[in-house]
Design a protein around this nucleic acid. Sequence first.
DNA 1: CAGTGAAGTGTAATAGTATTACACCACGGC
DNA 2: GCCGTGGTGTAATACTATTACACTTCACTG
Lengths: 169, 169
Amino acid sequence: MAGEKAHHERCEGHGHAHSPHSDVAAMIERARAFAAARKLPFTEMRARVLTVLAREEKPLTAYEITDRLSVSKKVQAVQVYRGLDFLQEAGCVHRLASKASYFACDHEHHPGEAVVFMVCSHCGTVQEAPSDLVAQGLQGAAEHAGFKPAHPIVELEGECARCSETKAA
Amino acid sequence: MAGEKAHHERCEGHGHAHSPHSDVAAMIERARAFAAARKLPFTEMRARVLTVLAREEKPLTAYEITDRLSVSKKVQAVQVYRGLDFLQEAGCVHRLASKASYFACDHEHHPGEAVVFMVCSHCGTVQEAPSDLVAQGLQGAAEHAGFKPAHPIVELEGECARCSETKAA
DNA sequence: CAGTGAAGTGTAATAGTATTACACCACGGC
DNA sequence: GCCGTGGTGTAATACTATTACACTTCACTG
């Protein structure tokens, strides 16, 4: 049942693992816009946290971010968590529940959409892919149980294409 | 051990919130069978951890289980984690990634199946519901990305039927 | 029947993730 | 001005999970 090409993705053809250099500036801009819309400041700290994540290929834990930032100037984990909270609200960063780690996302998500986080157990990268079928499945399960759905978490551990190829070679 | 409530509202068709009294003895038996099949001992500790979870309506954290068990005899978290590892392998207990907590499950799961954990943000209970649509969606997303899927995590936060009704009243 | 090895236990210590509390700062609005 | 909302920096703490190690149990086997 592969024929599932969901909405337009801003990702190029194959859902890419948010690559390290996928326009950091654009991500910053998106976060800034969100802040403006809420009349909240887009502070230095928020930008720094997002920048670290945007440059990274893999999810990082809050403490890894803390370490990265502390190289230039000592920061504490709580400051990073505050930044992450904001960025998650802004939709610029997602939390990977299975790994308790965080990664940047360069595109908008629409309400009601179900996004699958495919996590490579070999290299650690994450690919996002929206799925209508999953969304329908969740909706159906909820309906059947009289459950009022709010926020879905869909993570799929496995091996990414790149790592599979590498091994095959 | 505790009284057996003859009330087994076993899986009527679909997911019920694994109620506190859904036959604890049967769960123990299932775990015991798994152990036997693997030629592993089904020890006191394993039984105790499972019993605590089976009697509870909501997921518990490892430390909550530790506290419950420590009432009768002091145990340490690591012992509980060991029990949980076994029980998860046995399929008798699932981990809720979004809450870092654990709950008992009274039925088998089949490979390739995708199970939705519906978590009520009000009362904390979890209902399980298998969904073919979700399974297909995951499969499709993986195929499309050349991703080799292994273990899915599907959690849906929201409000259960009971809590919705209560509020409405 | 001793010897061996896989598996579990109990205990202590530690690593890793996240939050609370509080004093202080910055800025926008009346 | 000054007040309120929101951010920062710092310290401390709570919560989740793992590692290490000495000891036990038990099935197997030589």
